[in-house]
Write a protein that binds this DNA or RNA. Sequence first.
DNA 1: AGACCAAATATGGTCAGACCATACATCCTG
DNA 2: CAGGATGTATGGTCTGACCATATTTGGTCT
Lengths: 241, 241
Amino acid sequence: MVTPGERRRTDARPRAFEEVLARIEERIAADGLTVGDRLPGERQLAEQLGVGRSSVREALRVLETLGVVASQAGRGPDAGAVLTSRPGDALTDLLRLHLGLATLSMREVIDTRLMIEQWAAAHAASVRAASVRAATGRMAEAIAAMDAARDPAGFVEHDIAFHLALAEAAGNRLIVAVMRALRDAVRRYAVDAVVRLGDTGGLQDDHRRIHQAIEDGDAGAATAAVAEHLARAYPESGRDS
Amino acid sequence: MVTPGERRRTDARPRAFEEVLARIEERIAADGLTVGDRLPGERQLAEQLGVGRSSVREALRVLETLGVVASQAGRGPDAGAVLTSRPGDALTDLLRLHLGLATLSMREVIDTRLMIEQWAAAHAASVRAASVRAATGRMAEAIAAMDAARDPAGFVEHDIAFHLALAEAAGNRLIVAVMRALRDAVRRYAVDAVVRLGDTGGLQDDHRRIHQAIEDGDAGAATAAVAEHLARAYPESGRDS
DNA sequence: AGACCAAATATGGTCAGACCATACATCCTG
DNA sequence: CAGGATGTATGGTCTGACCATATTTGGTCT
């Protein structure tokens, strides 16, 4: 006797759409398909793999959810299922749904954000590449836009841009995608936090210190500034260490 | 005229399954549904929402992909679509597919892993909770199991357990899920790395140093040991800083 | 020749219905 | 009361039809 609920979908015969998924993934690897390439049409795939069209569609829906394909009706080179690369959307949906289910807590999300931003700030401060300078430029623009923002929602919009630029400065697309997903998933909470704080002056001071520390190449100061910034924005989710 | 390819699925009428997704998400929030609760059957949902059953099935497939529901045929309290919480599987699929598409590079994945493990090691070393002691205990068991491993695949299996325990020591489920996904997605590369190294003695020395540093509560030593460990395992993906 | 409009066509989107597989629920029998 | 036969609710899958969209094709007028 196994633990109740532990038997779910184990030792089961693979479903048709799972077989389709595996075949498509094989095909991507074998044929060296990459972003922009097209998959066969749904009807053609169904015939090739010996399954119904609905099973093919379920598989394509999964791939679309994972940000691997995008479908477009009509005719011509852009129609059909095309390989894409949108890992961020999938991450955003994932976080939003699991936050809704209370699978993940705000504190876990905030801590993860702290980890990423500290890492990004330290790396940005240590590197002097053109890409980093471009990112710090976007950070400065976002600070100015936040000064000009009229309402909390507008402020948060540019705040997201600022922190995203920070992540981009480190030059790691995976981390940027995670960062974007984190911010999108908690956008509502961020607006609440701004409303609760009332004054955004302290947050802006933090932003300027982070930006300055990166331009100065002072990784330690950048890390510390990020930590203080998140502590100010989310005081209730204090660390236990 | 927009940029080619920029028009994909914008300003489009939402598809039926997207409407279903939105309604289900609303319902989860409104009814306060949580893990273990059941959704209505596919036929019933289709009728309630005024769509075909296939559209409901596509929506459920998306939710299943995101690790939010699990479906089970049959009858009784465990049958049907049940809310679950498996964010890890979704992350694993996401990383594996995007690595296959060359959307993400190994270096980005390794760097992300370094970030997570350093953070986890530092936190584990700073906290003296029962949960941390349990995790360090699992780390010790994994080290012993790696000593006893007969082939690279077996070694990597316990290596994954070791690094997962390290992430668990920090007590953040989101970070654990990301860590698990990273390791699962690059399992094949890890085996190759072990084969290439030939001798696993160096890796085991690193493991013991990480474990010891955490038990000693020395966050700095733990962080440094993790960095050296990953540098040894993946020398080719050296940082540019 | 060129511009423009209409029909054909390829592709995804959706639905309805049928049937199968699974696993619990129910009832009947000994 | 135990145990098996039957019923039934549920997901899994296929087929076929039709709609919506957008390009391609070809014809027609200027």
